[in-house]
Design a protein around this nucleic acid. Structure first.
Lengths: 152, 152
DNA sequence: GCATTACATTTGTACCTACAAATATTGTAT
DNA sequence: ATACAATATTTGTAGGTACAAATGTAATGC
């Protein structure tokens, strides 16, 4: 469905504005679906992202700043996200002994298990959500998005 | 900048997942910038969208359900968004006389004036944000986004 | 050493989002 | 007419986002 029909956009909405609205709307469309999938596992999208980043550390602990840098939503309040994950026993937090300003966060066995359960689920969901585009189109879309971000 | 570098994605992230992450990240990237622009005018993005929808009504009042249907963020709590706009004298709310379940919302002169001030500002911002793509690429991007949403 | 600055995180506040339950009004079936 | 369902909005609650101020720790200059 074209974005102008989905949101009944005025016919004189210019192409540049329409593209940004379409980007926003399309993104939210899939985020919502992904969020409702994760909800069955009592996880929010940013919480899931924190876990994924921690797994990527392969045992090496991560500081809050390090997590934040790699989050899709850069402005998430990482302190409070980690608080929630600690309550669920999915991550551990301890003060870095070398630099007590820093916090060392690691994923627990339970967190790794949860991700292991989620792997096939999220993969299937992502494949399903992108099923309308073939490989070539997906690469094209990625390139256009990367180029769009490169504006000065 | 490629998304895998921006977020230091694992090299074995599949194309489908990468595309959805890129979509999410790119969208947030521009939403943030747009939000900080609107902030100078003491408006949030959803508040701005409500005003724009009301202007599109050309005097005809809109119900909350009607606004909601046309919002980019469908899950905004329109009642509370409208509350905030009323406090700023940008919209009016009254009960529909034919159907007292419905609420009729209209934009005030002050709201129209604000949008008039914002028009050149947002247009310039949108043009700036999309400056990295030419018309052909923008149309291609729109088509890919529309196609992506059409998945079954 | 002591003040100053920089760094890393935490806390506070206002707003937004997601969703379920509650309220009020209208329409419908019998 | 009354009960029941449908519609439209409101309210409550738990999380998330944005941003500024506060806290605690480490590094630097004198």
């Amino acid at each position: 469905m074209k974005i102008e029909d989905a949101l009944k956009l005025s016919s004189n909405t210019d192409l540049k504005s329409k593209t940004l609205i379409n980007l926003h709307y399309t993104s939210r469309f899939f985020e919502e679906r992904f969020a409702s999938l994760l909800k069955e596992f009592d996880l929010s999208v940013p919480q899931f992202n924190v876990l994924r980043i921690l797994r990527g550390q392969k045992g090496k602990p991560a500081s809050l700043a390090c997590i934040q840098e790699r989050m899709v939503d850069k402005n998430s309040n990482t302190t409070r996200l980690v608080d929630k994950l600690i309550l669920k026993n999915l991550v551990l937090r301890k003060v870095c002994p070398e630099n007590r300003r820093k916090i060392e966060i690691t994923i627990t066995e339970q967190g790794l298990d949860l991700l292991k359960t989620l792997d096939p689920v999220t993969q299937k969901s992502n494949a399903d959500h992108t099923s309308a585009l073939n490989t070539e189109e997906l690469e094209l879309l990625n390139n256009l998005l990367d180029k769009l971000k490169s504006h000065e």
